[in-house]
Every structure is written in C-alpha cells, then in structure tokens.
Amino acid sequence: MPAVVRRARTPCGENLDGMIEVEELTKRYGATTAVDGLSFQVKPGLVTGFLGPNGAGKSTTMRVLLGLDVPTSGRGLVNGRRYATMRYPMYEVGALLDANAVHGGRSAFDHLRCLARTNRIGVSRVAEVLERVGLAGVARRQVGGFSLGMRQRLGIAVALLGDPGVLMFDEPVNGLDPEGVWWIRHLMRSLAAEGRTVLLSSHLMSEMELTADRLVVIGRGRLVAETTPRELAARHDRGVLVRSPGAARLTGVLEAAGATVETGPGGELVVRGLDVTRIGDLAAGAGLAVHEITPRTASLEEAYLELTGDSTEYRAGGR
C-alpha cells in the first residue's frame, strides 16, 4: 500500500519536504545539559517514535524544534527552515506539547478559534477539527472542566487546524482511556499514511511497538539508537531455551552443528547460533526427547530498557 505523497506548499510557494532535522543540538539550562549533541532526521510518510526515559531530553528537543527554546548550539529545522522564521506555521507544522497548556476559562471552541485566527484559519475549520477529534458535543464547555483525555484531544485538534504536513506530539496517550489510546494509534497511522511526517514521543516502549515505523531512542540528551521496532527486538535476541532429559548428549550434537550452548542452573540449555526448527530436527535426528524449546527474543520493552539502562536519570533504589 503506497503512501500518498503530499506535495504541500507554504503560502509563500516554497515546497515542503516534510523533513524534521536535528543537527548537533545541545541545550543547557544553567548547569543542566538537557540535550547533548543530538542529531537525527524524521522522514515523511512514517510514524517516528521518539523514545527515552523521563528527563532524556525529548520535550526539550521538541521545544527547540518549535522555536520555544533557543538551542545552546546546533539547530533544529522543519522543512529546512527554523520554526521561528515561519510566518503562518500552523499550515506547515502541528504540535501538541502539553495538553494542559490551555486557559481553563475558555470554551473548547473559543480556545481553537483564538489560536486559528492568528494563522487566518476560519471558524468552519475549527468546527471540522472539533468533529474529527470527537469534541463537537462539548465545544461550548469550558476547557477547565475537561479531563486529561479530553485535553489531549483538544491539543490534537489544535495541531490539526492548519492541516499541516508535519506533526509532533509529546506523550499524547498520557491520561487516555483504552478507547482513546486506540483512537490516537489509528490517527497517527492514518496521518502518516496520508504522507505526513509524524514524530511521536513517549517513554513507553509498548506504545511504540504498535504505532511506530521508526524509532529514535535517546537517553541523557544523546542519541542511543536510530532503528525500527523489529531491528531493536532482533538485536536483543537471547538464544533458544531447550529442556531435554538428554541435555548432555544434546549439547554435543548442537555444538557439532555449530551452536554455542550454555547450561543453566536448572539443567536447561541456552542455545545460540541455531534456530528453533534446526534444533528440533537435530534433537529428533539424535533420538533425543525435548520437553521445551522456546526462542528467547527479548521483548521490545526489555530491549529498550537495556538500551536506555545506562542513561536513566532517576532510578529506583533496588536496581
């Protein structure tokens, strides 16, 4: 299923390539280095997961990309330009940084109308996005009374107002119920399928496993890995677990076939270098019973924890 190629233009007629580029970005707040020489690219037509433990620098990177923070050195570009130089950015970039960053005294409709008006977007479009995020029924209610989930939807409505080709969402599933999580996942997938660039930050690997095509993993402000969920899981392959009453003989057979075999404390074998099918065939060929044969692929969660383990800023005492 090919992605629909978006060929958008700015009001000034520039072609938009939909790229997000972070180049040697460093941001310090006083003595704290939030982002430290970070470089990566985000491409259109894909959902890129931006992963890292809390405090890894995800939000700071997004704040620099959106022109809210000035980098200490390096730069962040969207469509090849600095965000702060854009005149009507809503047509190019939609962003949700913090769902609670709203004035609670305004109605959802007024909140969107005020923001839309800065970029010359009319009320009919406001009504459309309210419909799309499922808030049309509460449009006249004050935002202060909204649940976090409703605020997330409102923030996404803001991002969608200008129908932009590049979208950034910072932890959008926080506070959502399962139906809301499902909805976001589908929204992200469909936005990317329309040819848009989607950058989605999270500290939860499980969320990315189902949503992201690519992963940018950071820890302590540095790039840890630029990969795909599949690659990440494969890289953390942990062999095949085999239990057999004839473990000693089986070890010999498997090692003869080129595997490396470790014996665990309970007599189980951990086999590397051969896949499940081959191990099963070899055991059968040798006339050995096998009670269990399990591939031990690390879950993405584990792989992620392994990757970011060194870079977690705050950690429970037990580890």
């Binding site: 809210l68 854009m86 962003a95 940084l97 913090d98 960053a101 709203v102 004035h103 923001l115 800065t118």
Partner: peptide, 18 residues
Amino acid sequence: TSEYVTGMARTGFTVMPR
C-alpha cells in the same frame, strides 16, 4: 501572566512564533 500561569503561552507562541 494569565497565559504564563496556565501554560497557554507555550501553545500561543507555538502557533505564532513572532
């Protein structure tokens, strides 16, 4: 200040960075 206190400033300066 009402924008800074509520966080609306972040949203506002994102949609209008000038």
